[in-house]
Structures are given as structure tokens and as C-alpha cells.
Amino acid sequence: MGHVLAPGVTAPDFTLHVTPDQTLSLGDLRGRPVVLAFYPADWSPVCGDQMAVYNQVLPEFRRHEAEVVGISVDSAWCHQAFAETHHLHFPLLADFEPKGAVARQYGAYRDGEGVCERALFVVDREGLIFWSYLSPIAVNPGADGILDALDRLETQETNDVRTQSAGVGG
């Protein structure tokens, strides 16, 4: 297992296809917390897979104003079919050409197999990595770690605002 990018580091910007004719950049999401979920492949043979669970948890993510994106090396066409079948309501990005380039930048690429790790990142509103987690490839990590990180991020933001206003007042 490699090392995924650690908290405190600027999340490398990227532009990837979200549909066959549209792209999405990390920079487009600046100003909101972003959850980056790298995963090995669309079409894993279970119905309650990682993306299906995140899809179902979207209201909780949105409560934190967070955007969620899934990233794998599957093509935009593959993602489109997968998202339609599973009624996914968040974007899946295709780290397809050059294959796995973005995953590599995040330390979330598996060379031997040529797929993304199951790696999770919470990026704060300024584009810094706030939390990261590398799950064993066979273990779907669920959403609890992400929601805990978003809770802590929110607490930190609240404290920062308090400190700043206290500073202005003093």
C-alpha cells in the first residue's frame, strides 16, 4: 500500500471528464468542502456498493454543503451507464487518459492492478486536504469517516470565525 496525500497539503487540481462531453475541475468546487472518493471500478458485484451508499447518504453530505465526486479509471461512457443504472446523483470522474494520472498525484493508484485505491479525501473550502484515508482495497470504507471529518471541519471553521471576530473586536 502506498501513501496517500496527507492533511495540510494543497489538493492537486485536476480536470477530468464527468460525461463524454463535459469536464469538471477541482477548482470549480472551491468554496465548498469536497469529498474525493477514489474507488477501483464501476460495476462491483454487490448492490449496496460504495457509490450506492454515498448516493443514499447525499442528504447528510449536503447538510455540510459538501460536494461528493467519485473517481475511477473507468471511461466517461462506463461511468454514465453505471450512474444511470444506480440512479447516482453525484458526478463520477473518469481518470482515464492518461490512465490514473490524477490518482497517482494523490498517491491513490495501484500500479500492479492498474486501478485506483479505495482512498478518501476531504478537501476544505480553500482547497487544502483536511482528512485522508486509505482503505484496504477489499474493504469498502463506508461513509462514517467522511462524515466525522466533515463534522470536525465544521467545528474548526466555526472556531476560526470566532477567533477572527474576537481578533477584530480586540
Partner: peptide
């Protein structure tokens, strides 16, 4: 559902045995 999400339910079915997720 929410208690499951916060406990790390990652699909269905997910089991917890004496409080620990069975992977």
C-alpha cells in the same frame, strides 16, 4: 439508516458482531 451510516455500514447486508463491523 443514519445510525448505520455513522457506524460504517458500507452496503447491504452489513453485520456488527458485539459492536464491531464484520468485514
Amino acid at each position: 439508516f443514519l445510525s448505520g451510516v455513522r457506524s460504517g455500514v458500507n452496503g447491504t447486508p452489513t453485520f456488527f458482531i458485539n459492536g464491531r463491523r464484520h468485514d
